[in-house]
């Protein structure tokens, strides 16, 4: 999947990967790739600036902590982040329902 198509959804995808608990940056990238079946293909270096921007927005919080014996910056959702994720999920369901209604029903019957 092209990175340009993903960029508009990157914030929501990052929030979703943190829904299960705190993760460090590379674990977030692995989670994105795993949950998308490897279809999400964007430069991994763009993930960190996006995470920091979400932190500026108050949607995630981060701190250095020891993970697997190494110091890593780990990220977690804030309360505002949980609310933003819920709103993103609702908007996404409405969007996909609408698009599915138009695109997903197979060929349209020929008009008389």
């Amino acid at each position: 999947m092209k990175s340009d198509a993903l960029r508009g959804h990157l914030d929501a995808l990052l929030l979703a990967t943190l829904d299960g608990g705190q993760l460090h940056g590379y674990a977030i990238i692995e989670a994105l790739q795993k949950r998308s079946g490897g279809a999400l293909d964007l430069p991994t270096g763009t993930v960190y600036p996006a995470l920091r921007r979400l932190e500026t927005a108050g949607l995630v919080a981060s701190e250095w902590s020891t993970v697997g014996g190494r110091q890593r910056r780990t990220y977690r959702l804030t309360k505002a982040g949980h609310r933003a994720l819920a709103a993103e999920r609702t908007a996404w369901r409405e969007f996909t329902t609408a698009i599915e209604g138009v695109l997903g029903g197979g060929p349209w019957p020929a008009q008389a």
């Binding site: 460090h24 940056g25 590379y26 991994t44 270096g45 960190y48 910056r73």
Partner: peptide, 10 residues
């Protein structure tokens, strides 16, 4: 530091 860590993880 975070970028370096990520690259080494990868």
């Amino acid at each position: 530091a975070e970028a370096r860590d990520s690259l080494h993880d990868a």
